[in-house]
Simulated assay, not measured.
Amino acid sequence: MTGEPILEVRDLCVDYGLGDRAVRAITDASLTLHRGEVLGLAGESGSGKSTLAYALTRLLRAPGVITGGEVRFHGRDGSLDLLAADAAALRRVRWNQISVVFQSAMHALDPVARIDAQLTDALRAHRSGLTAEQRTGRAVELLRLVGIDADRLRSYPHELSGGMRQRVMIAMALALDPEIVVMDEPTTALDVVTQREILTELMRLKDELGFAVVFITHDLSLLVELADTIAIMYAGRLVERGPARELFEGPRHPYTVGLLDSFPALHGERVRMEGIPGSPPALTALPTGCSFHPRCPFALERCAVDFPPTATPAGGSAVRLAACWLHEGGRELPAPLARSLGSTL
């Protein structure tokens, strides 16, 4: 299904601000993205998903500061440490090998520039040998690739629907045949029909062109059928990750259980939605121990004191990881965490 690693993130840490007033936004994040894989990042708003994605691509804006870790990209031109790369090396990689579909196409597109100018901008910067006619031809090809007629090239963003603007953003990201596409909530504010069309188109393009995807969303239900691997974030930490189907059928962290129980099943009996009590903590005042313990229905005394290590829970495959004290010592697990693989939600 997937190939060798193309992006390896190890112990990445990100702060906002400097000195005594710095706030830790990402703590010791480690991930591996394989060629052709869709890696989903899920969690509530403010959990650190976008910060993690922009940090590993070195697009993090001030006052964001990367304070530790390693991000290694294994591209077609060799291996590169993205955190140690200079401006020239980053320019060669960005958009050319790693591209981004930014959140909210309404604001990501330049409102006073026509679509053709915005599509050919990356071609002009990275393919200087192309003529104007060749760049226009590539722009037409890109629009058709995402299901938009070529006569829309001369349109302004406000003349397109929300779904069409999002498709233009995807076309821009694919302009230079990148190896990785980072998608930051690309279907936000779209109706469910348009959302489904865009996701279907995205999967078709991924299979056709062979790029890997980092897909960021707060909607875990999207990732169940979209992603190969899912990583769950809470308060700046990765608390669980594993194969999408395995995580869906047998969650091993109480926060993941809460996220899965926050959307209704399409089949079966009607049940009362429970959700997750409380709100995510402020990064300036994180609880001691496990950050989730004030909201966790299964919290132990130790959860309020020590943050649990990330380890493979019992009954999971070798690639399953969860950070929860409930999996230590062979204790009997609460029923939601003991859910066997192959069961239904």
Rank of each mutant, 00 (worst) to 15 (best):
G43S: 15
G43P: 07
E44C: 01
S45C: 08
S45N: 05
G46D: 04
S47M: 03
S47Y: 01
S47N: 00
S47E: 06
S47T: 01
G48I: 01
K49M: 01
K49N: 05
K49Q: 05
S50L: 07
T51S: 05
T51Y: 01
T51H: 06
L52F: 01
L52K: 03
A53Y: 00
Y54F: 09
Y54Q: 11
Y54C: 06
A55I: 03
A55H: 09
A55R: 00
A55P: 02
L56T: 03
L56M: 13
L56I: 13
T57W: 08
T57N: 12
T57D: 09
R58F: 08
L59K: 12
L59N: 05
A62C: 10
A62H: 05
P63K: 01
G64I: 04
G64H: 02
G64F: 01
V65R: 12
I66K: 02
T67Q: 12
G68K: 04
G68M: 11
G68V: 12
G69N: 13
G69C: 12
E70Y: 10
E70M: 13
V71N: 04
V71G: 14
R72S: 11
R72A: 11
R72P: 14
R72Q: 14
F73A: 15
F73T: 08
F73H: 15
H74I: 15
H74G: 06
H74F: 15
G75C: 09
G75W: 11
